[in-house]
């Protein structure tokens, strides 16, 4: 059986070999540990942004909240945090990577052909809400817990990582239609 070569309209560069990309990511994480003493994170930046915005709207409620209030007892702005600055870099890194690889697709939605744009966006939001909640409960996400904690062999991070894969595989059949 012969498969026709896919016709590429854009001069898009291929993705890196995943093993080499992993080594590059690991080298960056190793360097971060050597320089900073801690690792990478992703969820706490957007979380702090959300809590900062909420604080503008409802300062009293935010400060009185048993969980969110703790972000406002440190003194200084909730946004003056290492992870916030790091996450700004992640966003810029995404821009740089996509732009230099010819992969910048402004306004695009990543989805399969059998789902409407609106439904795919709805699932992206629902998934995002679940993740935002889960990352608070789990004290981190795939970056701060699974990757960073996993690399320093933290027991809880490995349990978290295996649970992420389990949750993903269990749910995958239910949301399959958005990809194919």
């Amino acid at each position: 059986m012969t498969t026709p070569q896919p016709v590429s309209l854009s001069a898009e560069r291929p993705f890196w070999n995943p093993y080499l990309a992993g080594v590059a990511l690991g080298a960056l994480l190793l360097g971060t540990y050597l320089v900073m003493g801690f690792g990478l994170g992703s969820s706490s930046g957007p979380t702090r942004l959300a809590y900062g915005a909420l604080h503008l709207l409802a300062p009293a409620w935010t400060e009185a909240n048993g969980y969110i209030g703790a972000y406002f007892t440190e003194g200084g702005s909730v946004l003056m945090d290492w992870m916030v600055f790091e996450v700004v870099g992640v966003l810029l890194g995404g821009v740089l990577g996509a732009y230099t690889a010819g992969r910048m697709r402004r306004g695009a939605v990543s989805k399969g052909p059998n789902i409407s744009r609106g439904k795919r966006i709805a699932l992206a939001i629902v998934g995002g809400v679940i993740m935002g909640f889960a990352a608070r409960l789990g004290r981190g996400c795939t970056s701060g817990q699974a990757l960073t904690g996993g690399a320093v062999l933290a027991l809880g991070s490995w349990i978290f990582m295996l649970s992420v894969f389990a949750g993903g595989y269990l749910t995958a059949p239910l949301v399959r239609r958005q990809w194919r």
């Binding site: 935002g132 889960a134 990352a135 409960l137 004290r139 795939t142 649970s163 389990a166 949750g167």
Partner: peptide, 9 residues
């Protein structure tokens, strides 16, 4: 937290 994050992912 891990299971839910996988569901959201």
């Amino acid at each position: 937290g891990g299971l839910l994050l996988g569901v959201g992912f």
